[in-house]
């Protein structure tokens, strides 16, 4: 299986409602795309995403997602990945469940293996 990684900037999701953002994410993830969202999800949006994911599972091609949110902190410099502005409160990675596995996941360190 081949996966694509999309880095989604603020500008792509900033005008979407929470519901629209969740739908947008799922529409891409079910098509084997790993998303790195500059506009990280709130915990409420994460829960909504998990709930909506359950209705998309077909047990054949799509069995769910893996979800990682990295929260911004004083020493958080990852926002430089995307832009010069300081809007970034953290970012969220959403991937098809089968696409990634966590090698090491500690605060500040996230190592994931992408399936070949």
């Amino acid at each position: 299986m081949r996966y694509r990684v999309d880095f989604i900037p603020f500008s792509e999701t900033i005008d979407l409602s929470s519901e629209e953002k969740v739908s947008y994410i799922l529409s891409k993830v079910v098509r084997n795309t790993i998303l790195v969202l500059e506009d990280g999800l709130s915990h409420t949006e994460e829960m909504n995403l998990i709930e909506k994911t359950m209705s998309k599972i077909d047990f054949d091609k799509f069995v769910g997602i893996k979800l990682f949110s990295i929260e911004g902190g004083d020493d958080f410099k990852w926002s430089r990945l995307f832009s010069k502005n300081n809007k970034t409160k953290g970012f969220t990675i959403v991937a098809p469940n089968e696409a990634v596995s966590v090698i090491k996941d500690k605060r500040g360190i996230l190592s994931i293996r992408i399936a070949g």
Binding site: I50, T53, S55, F59, V63, G64, N97
Partner: peptide, 29 residues
């Protein structure tokens, strides 16, 4: 609470394909 439900995981515990699928459907609900 989980963000994925894979019937194959249940089969590793000795469930048949049918049992695993039924369990997976119930788990998502």
């Amino acid at each position: 609470i989980a963000s994925s439900v894979n019937p194959k995981e249940f089969m590793k515990h000795g469930l048949s394909a049918g049992e695993a699928m039924q369990r997976a459907k119930e788990a998502t609900r």
